[in-house]
Amino acid sequence: MHIPDGFISPSTYLPATVAAIPLLMIAFKKTKEAINDESFAFLSSLTAFSFVIMMFNIPIPGGTSGHAIGAAILAIMFGPWVAAFCISLTLFIQALVFGDGGLSVFAINSLAMGFVASFAAFYVHKLLNNRLNNSIVLFLSGWSGIVAASFVVAVALGIQPLLGVDSVGHPIYFPFGLNVTIPAVVGSHVLFFGVVEGFATMLVMKFIAKISNQRTNKEVVI
């Protein structure tokens, strides 16, 4: 879902950067408050985790596979602000240290994959928790986070033909309008990448619950 440099006009990414900076500052402040004095070591660990989760290839029924971003896992475990900050920091590191993703579009990627995905996943989980089967709730949290993020990316890409054209009227940034980006980007996330994220959220959260139960039982026995 990363948007690379060069496809988004300055009239889109500059306002997005202005919007993202205060949000990131609030996220950083809230994260530090939430995790107290161990914050820096803990934050860097979660950032490394969100980087590493993107390296796992997760197969889904149908014969294909993809990678998750881990927004729902972090949001459910540590809250949406912590998740948004860690994913944004991962995207910043990918853009500036590893040259992947692009610094000019960092704000849009951060708003979509960091903030929108984390908050959507967190609130879907909060809304559905204890109302449906736990596996379904976890799957839907991961799926809805990534689908919501893909909608933001689709809009950011789809408005580009309206914002920049050359002398003969051809687009000079991303060429396809909303009529193409919404079904292509959101559709692929509804059917594929959302399923990958949902599966990853379900597998990891269930495993964490399993090892937590084992630890609790062991402590009781001891």
Binding site: S45, L203, F207
Partner: peptide, 19 residues
């Protein structure tokens, strides 16, 4: 599931040691 959760567990434990 075990590998990703293992990485998360490892990260959290190491963050305490780092701190």
């Amino acid at each position: 599931g075990s590998a990703i959760a293992g990485f998360l567990d490892k990260n959290i434990r190491e963050s305490k040691e780092n701190f």
